[in-house]
Structure formats: C-alpha cells, structure tokens
Nucleic acid binder design. Structure first.
Lengths: 188, 188
DNA sequence: GTCTATATACCGATAGAC
DNA sequence: GTCTATCGGTATATAGAC
C-alpha cells in the first residue's frame, strides 16, 4: 500500500467518488439506480455507500441538486449561455435530475422550482406583455430541446449526423427565435 | 350474478379493462408500475394480468403505443391541432410513454420514431431552408411544453392558475411563434 | 474501519387447488 | 376459468465478524 493520506482526507475523497458515481448512475438509470451499481462504479463496497450517506434517498437528494444558474441581467446573453450549455454537454446533476423527475416527486418539485426561478428572472428582465407566459414557453422549449438532444437522440439535433451540424449552428437558429418570442416581435 | 355476457365477450372486456389500467399505472409510475398495482386498479387478480398478456413487458409494449398522428398537409392546422391536444388533456398512452421513456430504452426508441415522423412530415410540408432543423426544434418545443404542463406543473402553463389563463390563450401565443420558426420569417 | 452475512420486503412469474 | 400459494430473484438497510 502506498503512503496513505490522512484518514480524514481519504474518507472525504471516497465520499466524493461515491457522489460522482451516484450522479452518473442516477443519470443513466434514473430512480432505478441501485446502491450496488453506485458502489461498483465508485469501486467501493455497497455498505460503504450507506455508511457515508445514510440512505439511498439522502444520496439521491445530494446527487440531483442542480448547479446554480447564472443571472439574467442581459436576456440575449443569458439565452445564449443556457442554450449552449444545454446543447453541448449536460452536467451530471442535471442529467440525473431530468432522468429521475418522472419517477420521483421530489425530483419533479426540485425541477419545478429550478425552472420557475429561470422563468421569473427572464420575465423580469424582458418586461413585455404576457412576460411570464412567454418566459415559461421559452424555458419549456429549452427543456424540450435538452431532452430531445440528450435523452431521445433526435437526429436533427445530433451534431455531426447527416449534415455535420454543430451545436453552434443549432444555437444560431434557435437563439434569435427564442429572443423574438420573449421580446414579442414575432409575426405570423 | 346478473345475466352474463358470452364468455368470450366478458373475457375481452376484462382484457380491455386491464389494458386501460396498465396505461394509467404506467402513466403515473412509469416503468415502476407493478402487475399488482395494475390488477388492483382493474379490479382483477394479479395472475389474470399475466394470464391475458403473458408478461409485464408485453403489456407495457401495448400500453405505450401512441395513437396515430394526424397528417400535416396544412402546417398551421397541424400545429394548432397538435398544440391544443398537448396543452389540454393527454391521451393515456402518450402519458405512459413520456413517463416511461427515461427508464425504458424501448419506450425511448418508440418516442424517437414517433417524433421523427412528425419532424419529417412538418419539414416536407414547409420546405424552407434548414427545414429539418426547424421542424426538429418545433417538435422538441412542443414536447417541452407538454412535459412542463403535465409532468412538472409550471404555473405559467397551468390553466386557471393566477391569471385564469385558458389553454387556448397559451396556444394563441405559441402557435404563431412556432409557425414563424417553421416558415423562417422570424427576426431578431 | 471495512466487509460478510443477513433481516425484511417486494418484485415478476409459475404451479396447482377449487 | 379463477384464485391461492409460492418460487426465485433483487432491492434497501442493518448487525456483527475481523
């Protein structure tokens, strides 16, 4: 055995590895992820998972906490940032949250709160008529694009598929369209 | 016991009740729905469920088959029809499919095929530049609105919530916006 | 401190009583 | 034909061996 770190540090590092493994497993299997699967991915004994986190439910709660959202002082910048993030790679916690929110009321509530915060930030920053409705539609559309891209695999959003489309090209089309709805300048 | 129908009809009626119960249970619990729960909802013995359908997986396959989509000869009519259907009440099979597609690869594949058919119909009917990309974004947005409305419960889409908004009012805002993206006439 | 063994519960599916 | 009883498997969680 190599020179070991202080016990406390080793324990914290193991706990972090378990949490990362939990995010990955919940991201792949949703609420059907198992303690055994998480332990195997983290390279530890299953009992250690509960030793560190007490229960599967507690570990789940920690694993699906989304990263803090950026502020929305500038609407266009905010839209572009969020859209790029959702079309490129998904943070493990976000992937786990989306995968789990249809079979966990707790996850659904967390997602509702998270999305509603973005709705209110966008609505406040735009301030047009029907601002909340428009912001809700924008946020819902981004959610739909995220799911279609990362969980369903619709070929039209798959980068490098048929027409070798990059995520940037998708965002170039989508961003002005979302901005137009928020601003209320679209015409049919 | 009242005068009973012919055995065959009674049996078919029971099978139909079981299938309906399965759609409801898969719509509520996703792939976590149980044979026992389905049987209880249908008012029959659990063994009867397997007697009729062979296996849970076979019953699941039948329960999540979406109803056939309408044709898209007229783009605006098609958008309006689909949008109204998704914002009002969701068919049981569609609810079960969406709820299950994150924990069942079979359901995910079925949803991909279903959405891609709508994408190609819309893209063919519009025929603008980047038609497939635009149709994919439209279909993904409708999916996002459906999920936000029926599975997350975002207040901005909740009919009769704060501003007593009807689904029609939501569709009145969303439909022209989606049509503009398809037609390529939006401006930023 | 780490892991083996197990308690408890629920799942899908099957066999056989009536 | 319908239902009782149960098998085999797997899950979370706990207790105790070392």
């Amino acid at each position: 055995m190599p020179e070991s770190l202080p016990r406390k540090d080793r324990r914290a590092a193991t706990a972090a590895r378990i949490l990362e493994a939990a995010q990955t497993e919940f991201g792949v299997h949703g609420t059907r992820a198992t303690i055994r699967g998480i332990a195997q991915r983290a390279g530890v004994d299953p009992s250690l998972v509960l030793q560190h986190y007490g229960s599967k439910d507690n570990l789940f709660t920690l694993a699906v906490q989304p990263v803090a959202s950026v502020s929305a002082d500038d609407v266009d910048d905010h839209l572009r940032t969020v859209l790029d993030a959702r079309l490129l790679e998904l943070p493990p916690a976000t992937r786990a949250l989306i995968r789990s929110m249809f079979t966990s009321e707790q996850a659904a509530q967390l997602m509702r709160k998270y999305l509603q915060e973005r709705v209110e930030a966008l609505a406040h920053a735009s301030g047009t008529e029907d601002a909340e409705l428009r912001a809700t539609v924008v946020v819902s559309s981004i959610l739909g694009l995220t799911i279609a891209r990362h969980f369903i695999g619709l070929p039209g959003l798959d980068p490098g598929a048929d027409g070798s489309r990059t995520p940037d090209q998708v965002a170039d089309v989508v961003e002005p369209w979302l901005a137009a709805l928020l601003a209320g300048t679209e015409d049919a």
